[in-house]
Amino acid sequence: MSEAEAASPFAGERAPASPRADLVTAAVLFALGVAIVQQSLAMPRFVEQSGTGLTAPGIVPGFYGVMIAALSLLLGLRAIRRGGWSAGGAARRGAGEGRRLLLAAALGVLYAGVLVGRVPFWLASALFVFAFTAAFEWNRGPERRARRILEAALIGLGTGLAVTLVFEKLFLLRLP
């Protein structure tokens, strides 16, 4: 692997986001901050119980709400100064990346949100691992596809059974 291909240690969390993305994020966070403050003000104060009202449940989240709103305002102002109004949208990633992300998220939600709790855990896990592996390996071309699908089924079944046995019998955990 050449150095040009290698991931930079400053990528990921250390690379800056686009000004437009920051501006939109700041708007959403500002709305969240204001909503937290409004909800905190609407909470009961319990003045009769405490005598002073200093134990009111809304004080602490209200403070956080104010801070989130104020800091997101700063983020928004900085994004505008960086050209957030005029700059184009966030750098577009390839369509393939978006598709892979959506597929992974959809399968994850389907498994953890729908299957788990409705079908036996070992079966749900086996189906999920099989579907995930088979779906992501589908595009590797038709040659040896049948073999890959068989391997995916075996990995799924193995995972479902191994996880159930190890965690129920060895780690004494309850499974969904």
Partner: peptide, 25 residues
């Protein structure tokens, strides 16, 4: 493609393990 679904299954077990609530998942 083969490792990540197994990690996801472990995450699900982990989220559920402490209080046994589907809500935690």
């Amino acid at each position: 493609e083969r490792l990540m679904p197994v990690v996801f299954v472990l995450c699900t077990v982990g989220a559920f393990a402490i209080t046994s609530r589907l809500f935690d998942i």
